[in-house]
Simulated assay, not measured.
Amino acid sequence: MSETIETWFDQPLLFTIAERHVRGRLVRLGPVLNSIMAAHSYPPTAEKLLAEALVLTVLLGSTLKDPESQLTLQAQTGGGPVELLVCDYRGGELRGYLRFDAERLAEVGTDPTLFALFGEGFLAITFDQAASGERYQGIVPLEGASIGDAAEHYFGQSEQIPSLIRLAARHDAEAGCVAGGLLLQHLPEGEVGRDRLHVRHDHPEWAHARTIAETLKPEELTDPATSLETLAWRLFHEEEEVRIEPGLAVSRGCRCSLDYFAGVLSKFPEVERREMADESGTIEVDCAFCSRLFPIPLDEIASHD
């Protein structure tokens, strides 16, 4: 590995092991994560779930080549206490929100399974490609010990890309909520001239890389004193070459504003807008992501028509 400025929080580290036909991402969220969490009073179980989902969103979003493209992660309940989980990433901007039944969530304990949280729910991963205007979406059952397991299943089933995902989150007395993750993938056809993965069943180079990556511990992913470069070196220092580069810095990006909501409301018929307004002629919009109310007068909405 070549020398580089070390990466600690809120910026993914991208790496490629060409000899193994493997690419990966490491990320650790701290200040940005706490900024997102501050909008709501999440209990520990909800905080951990959302933190891991936000890490997963950054890992997947960092694979997008166009900064205007968007990755959306959405999990919906099949009868569990978590009713909705939604996160998205665009050009380094990250946001997320969790809606749940507090009483039922308190009953599942501190380390619940995905089934205990969602019931027979589903995970939808959507890639919106800005350049082509195309949208790709995969939907898989929420099965496994973590939301990372469900995402692994998505890549294996929908994309036919062997993948390893590791997520971890904890509450630190000084740093607040800290969460980290690893995404490791066998490079798809075309990137290094490989055969189509679904017609091959033996991938010794992938099996080796996966076995090494599986030794990564949750406490390493969330350790504020360990840089991402150090983690990559610990895992793959015996490889002949590991190419690394920093990804886009991550920021909280709710993207909500009076002007934005006024533009959305202007698409509704005038009669419907008047039905939504209160006695003073104002529509109040509640942004679930940042937990803010936006009072928007009807005449301001009309100016967007």
Rank of each mutant, 00 (worst) to 15 (best):
S2H: 14
E3C: 08
I5M: 14
F9Q: 14
P12F: 11
L14K: 15
F15P: 07
E19L: 13
V22I: 15
G24D: 14
R25H: 15
L26Q: 06
V27A: 13
R28L: 10
G30M: 10
N34I: 11
S35L: 10
A39S: 14
Y42T: 06
L50V: 02
V55Y: 03
V55F: 01
L56K: 05
T57A: 05
T57G: 02
V58D: 00
L60E: 05
G61Q: 05
G61W: 06
L64H: 09
K65A: 13
K65V: 10
P67E: 09
P67F: 05
Q70I: 02
L71M: 14
T72I: 06
A75T: 03
T77S: 15
P81R: 04
L84S: 02
L85H: 05
C87M: 02
C87E: 06
Y89D: 09
G96M: 07
R99V: 10
R99K: 14
E103I: 07
V108Q: 05
G109R: 10
D111K: 11
D111W: 05
L117A: 04
L117Q: 01
F118I: 00
E120K: 09
A124Y: 02
I125M: 02
A130G: 05
G133Q: 06
E134R: 07
R135D: 02
Q137Y: 01
V140A: 04
V140F: 06
P141C: 01
E143C: 00
G144M: 05
A145K: 11
S146F: 01
S146E: 04
I147R: 04
I147V: 14
A151H: 03
Y154V: 01
Q157Y: 07
L164W: 03
D172S: 07
E174M: 11
G176P: 09
C177A: 10
C177L: 00
G181M: 05
L182R: 04
L183K: 04
Q185F: 04
L187R: 02
P188V: 07
V192N: 13
D195N: 07
R196A: 10
V199R: 09
E205I: 00
A207P: 00
H208A: 11
L221C: 03
S227C: 13
L231M: 10
L231R: 05
L235K: 06
H237K: 12
E240W: 00
V242P: 04
V242W: 00
G247L: 09
G253V: 10
R255M: 02
S257F: 10
F261N: 12
A262P: 13
A262W: 08
F268Q: 11
P269Y: 04
E270Q: 11
V271Y: 11
M276F: 15
A277C: 12
E279P: 00
G281N: 12
G281L: 13
I283C: 15
V285G: 13
F289R: 08
F289W: 13
C290L: 12
R292W: 12
I296S: 12
I301P: 04
S303E: 12
